[in-house]
Computed example of a mutant assay.
Amino acid sequence: MSRHNHRTMQQQSANQVRLIQSAVLCALGITVTVAAISLKGQSDPAEPTRACDLHFSNGYTLAGVPVAETVAQHTKGLSKRNDVGPGMLFTWPEPEPRIFWMRDTWIPLTIGFFDGDGRLFAIEDMQPNTDDHHASVHPAADALELPQGDFQRYGLQEGVRLTGRTCWLLDNEAMRKLEAE
Rank of each mutant, 00 (worst) to 15 (best):
F56D: 15
G64E: 08
T91V: 04
N58H: 06
T61V: 12
H55V: 10
P86M: 00
T70N: 09
G59P: 14
N82V: 06
R98E: 04
S57R: 00
D53N: 15
A68C: 07
P66S: 06
E69K: 03
E69A: 12
F90C: 13
R81T: 08
R98K: 08
A72S: 14
F56P: 10
D53S: 12
K76T: 10
P66A: 02
M88D: 14
G85Y: 03
L54E: 10
E94C: 02
E69T: 04
H74W: 07
L89G: 12
F100T: 11
L78W: 00
A68D: 04
P86W: 03
L89I: 04
N82Y: 01
W92Q: 11
D53K: 08
G59V: 04
T75A: 14
L89T: 02
G85M: 06
S57W: 01
T75D: 09
A68P: 11
N82F: 03
L54G: 14
T70A: 15
P93V: 04
P86T: 03
V71K: 03
E69L: 07
V84A: 12
L62N: 11
P66I: 01
T75F: 01
E69C: 07
A68L: 02
K80P: 13
P97I: 05
N82M: 04
P86R: 03
W92D: 15
T61D: 14
A63D: 15
E94R: 08
M88F: 01
F90D: 13
P86G: 07
R98W: 00
P93K: 09
N82H: 03
A63Y: 05
T91I: 00
H74F: 05
G77D: 08
L78F: 00
M88R: 04
Y60W: 02
V65Q: 13
S57C: 09
G85D: 12
R81N: 10
R98Y: 02
P86Q: 07
G77C: 07
M88C: 14
T75C: 08
Y60H: 12
F100L: 12
L54N: 15
F100N: 14
E69D: 09
N58A: 13
G85W: 00
A68F: 02
P93H: 05
G85A: 13
W92K: 12
S57N: 05
H74E: 11
P97V: 11
T70V: 08
P97K: 06
P66R: 05
R81L: 10
E69R: 02
G59K: 02
V65A: 15
Q73S: 10
L54F: 06
F90M: 10
G85Q: 09
D83Q: 05
D53T: 13
V65K: 11
L78D: 02
A63R: 10
H74C: 15
T70C: 15
P66N: 06
G77V: 00
P93I: 04
A72E: 13
T61H: 04
T61K: 09
T91N: 04
E94G: 09
I99N: 08
L78Y: 00
K80E: 11
W92C: 11
A68S: 08
K80N: 13
E96P: 15
L54M: 12
H55Y: 01
D83I: 02
V84M: 06
G85K: 03
Q73C: 13
E94S: 13
G87V: 05
T91G: 06
Q73G: 13
E94I: 04
R81P: 14
L54H: 11
A72Y: 01
E69N: 07
E94A: 08
H55F: 01
K76W: 03
M88G: 15
Y60D: 10
L78M: 00
